[in-house]
Nucleic acid binder design. Structure first.
Lengths: 234, 234
DNA sequence: TCAAAAGTGTTAGTGATACACCCATGC
DNA sequence: GCATGGGTGTATCACTAACACTTTTGA
């Protein structure tokens, strides 16, 4: 812990974290990208929808603060978050000068129970397809949401294994592709997609000879070689 | 300005900005990347070298704070800064919990007069070639410096016109290439480099037929089509 | 035998890399 | 005329994007 040998008592901006957590829902043929929003239970913007988030505590790591706020307001825990950046434009928060550090994450919606607590009057996933409109968001959260989504898409292009949490342990290539399409917001060519993921080193492994019945031809199952939260076996 | 209708009086982390400002110096054949450091005039880490930076004031924009601190501590003003990200690990500052937003910039060293003021006892450019070692840096600034340099290299690869401030208004392609090599930290193929920059739309324009004498064959002069701080003419 | 998804290869274009020679000038 | 840096073009490779047919199964 910090030692406080020196002190700087001047007025200072407050620090918050906000979290743009995405998931994907729906039938394979029609997966939709969704974002997690809370209905604010406190002023300012009481009753408006917003990204989950809140104040960073003394001696709390930024990422830890983001995880804590997410847990407190939505019940979701144990997710992987990445930092997008910091925003501190004066006037973005009516309470005064607030600097926000924005995080983004991606989870399987149906593996997490939503439970609004703390400052959140309600929690819900909102569809994010092109053309579907969200409710007006509190603060500058519409801007933060756009930044987070752009960041997520860039990152998934570099590292497709970040999807791992969204799929069952064993999955078909069609499932993986549907997921990639939902997040990228566009259709992908099946042959090119399969070639690309199969040729990526240390990404996929055929799951033990087993298959899964569609209501027609069964598909080969795969699994990720190294789940992102475990070290790969040497 | 913010209205302060609500208040959050809890203890909060402090917010600072740090700036990793780079330049390039030396003869064309031997340009060296350099970083601007200050010698701290105050505790903690008094006497140690560090990135310029300091506390963000109430109702001050992050980028504005970075520009102000840079001006106050080093005398350098009117530069273009980009945000790299935020770091808030507890214990990174002995004064207590401090969240730092890191900025990176690139300037022509010989166009700016250095003048240490405020918390800085001295200001100097430090060579950053591979193998040359910097003095030990205060706080976690060695880490921040690595992050900033990686960010700068990524960005310049995408947007070579960010070099514009480093060159005279008219410059030769060899000068531009020497600059790119110094920043990237590696040699580049002359033909490929020239083809790439010439084929980049709206980047370069031949300067009015004029030439400049080398001590041998003169080289064609170029200029950037749109200096980054001006809008391009339609 | 049909419907529905799984599975598979080739071609064309584009951008990156590697590489060698002639040109213009000052001395 | 020679040393010095300025200037150019081509072959190869890797990656991307476009594209159509056969296979397997349940009903």
């Amino acid at each position: 812990m910090a030692k406080r040998k020196y002190s700087y008592p001047w007025p200072r901006p407050a620090v918050t974290v906000d979290i743009a957590l995405f998931t994907v829902a729906g039938a394979l043929q029609n997966l939709r990208l969704r974002v997690l929003l809370i209905e604010r239970g406190e002023q300012p913007f009481r009753g408006a929808w917003a990204l989950p988030g809140g104040f960073v505590r003394q001696d709390e790591d930024l990422q830890a603060a983001a995880l804590r706020e997410l847990q407190e307001e939505t019940g979701i825990a144990q997710v992987f978050l990445e930092q997008v950046g910091a925003v501190g434009t004066p006037g973005r928060d009516p309470r005064g000068h607030v600097v926000t550090v924005l995080y983004v994450g991606l989870v399987a919606g149906d593996r997490h129970q939503l439970a609004s607590q703390g400052d959140a009057a309600a929690v819900r996933w909102f569809d994010l397809a092109a053309g579907v409109s969200l409710p007006p968001l509190a603060f500058d959260h519409a801007l933060l949401l756009r930044q987070a989504l752009a960041h997520l898409r860039r990152r998934l292009d570099e590292a497709p294994a970040l999807c791992a949490e969204l799929l069952p342990e064993r999955f078909t290539l069609s499932e993986l592709q549907a997921l990639a399409e939902a997040i990228a917001g566009q259709r992908l060519d099946r042959r090119n997609f399969r070639r690309k993921v199969k040729e990526t080193p240390d990404l996929l492994r055929r799951a033990e000879g087993s298959r899964r019945e569609g209501r027609h031809r069964p598909a080969q199952l795969y699994r990720f070689v190294s789940p992102p939260d475990q070290a790969p076996a040497p």
